[in-house]
Simulated assay, not measured.
Amino acid sequence: MSPNALIPSHRKPRRSASSRALRAGVTGGFLTLAVTGATVPANAAEKPVSETQEMPTITAALATSAAKSADAAQQAAYNYERQALQDATEAKADEAAGKAKAAAEKKAKAEAEAKKAAEEARQEKEAAQARASRSETRSALSAVSDSSSSSSSHATGSAASLVSFLKSQLGKAYVLGSSGPSSYDCSGLTQAAFSQIGIDLPRVSQSQSTTGTQVGLGNLQVGDILYWGSAGSAYHVAVYVGNGNFIGAQNPSTGIVERPLSYDMPTGAVRVL
């Protein structure tokens, strides 16, 4: 036996045919893999076989992803800012519209109140004018009544005969153009009445309104001729009989009646007695 038989060998054991050796390195952004011993026969010389595979650069991909994230964040920030500006603009517009509406409503209310006040003032003015007119009319009628009462108590002679005749005609018919004795028109009645006391009057009311002396309605006496319309163009006449009343042939509906002056206030009067 050899003296070296029991000494272990220091030679490395032969690698099996299926063993592989992996070597890796990064060069210029590419990953290089070196594979050796793939399906190599046992008696063949070991010969390294290199296989190279290109892969995307990790740094560039990360940079692209980060850039996209930054763009997305910037776009989102821009969208938020634009929405905020839009919301602020709409809020200001709503506020301005609200103020404008409130101002318009306030103005309309003020105008309505002013219009109402003006209308009330106008109505009050008209009412005051109407009261003043009624007061003047009552004063005139009172003066006429007082004057007529005084003159009526002294109505004797021809005035008394005139009133007596007129009262006897009450209730007779009104007929246009008639002078009695069963019917009369307004000027026909006054002409017939004054003929009873010997006074000749013109036939028509226009001429009768200018016969004698013009007198004021506040100074009437029994027997004064009242007329409606202008002197010289009167359209109706009657005779004042005292106590604020007159007698006349009014119209076909009423015939000859006695009425107060307030029933139909005359325009003027003439005196022939």
Rank of each mutant, 00 (worst) to 15 (best):
A5K: 15
A5N: 14
L6P: 02
L6F: 13
R11S: 09
R11W: 09
K12M: 07
R15D: 03
A17H: 13
S18T: 15
S19G: 09
G25K: 15
V26T: 10
T27S: 13
F30A: 11
F30P: 01
L31K: 15
V35T: 10
A38D: 07
T39D: 15
T39W: 15
P41R: 14
N43S: 09
A44P: 02
P48A: 10
S50K: 11
E51R: 13
T52F: 15
T52K: 15
T59C: 04
L62Q: 14
S65C: 06
A66N: 14
A67Q: 14
K68P: 02
R82E: 08
E90H: 09
A91E: 10
A97H: 15
A102M: 04
A104R: 10
K106A: 12
K106S: 11
K109F: 08
K115A: 13
K116V: 03
A117I: 04
E119D: 09
E120Q: 13
A127F: 14
R131I: 08
A132W: 15
T137F: 03
T137G: 00
S142E: 04
D146C: 00
S147G: 05
S148Y: 06
S150E: 07
S152P: 00
T156A: 07
G157H: 03
G157S: 06
A159C: 06
L162M: 06
V163C: 08
V163F: 03
V163T: 05
F165E: 05
F165N: 02
Q169N: 00
Y174G: 01
V175P: 06
G180W: 05
G180I: 05
S182P: 00
C186G: 00
L189E: 01
F194D: 04
S195Y: 11
Q196E: 05
G198L: 06
L201Y: 10
P202D: 00
S209V: 10
G212H: 13
L217A: 01
L217D: 00
V222A: 02
V222Y: 14
I225P: 01
Y227R: 02
S230C: 06
G232A: 03
A238S: 06
Y240D: 01
N245Q: 11
I247R: 07
S253D: 07
S253V: 04
R259M: 02
P260S: 00
S262W: 00
P266T: 03
V272F: 12
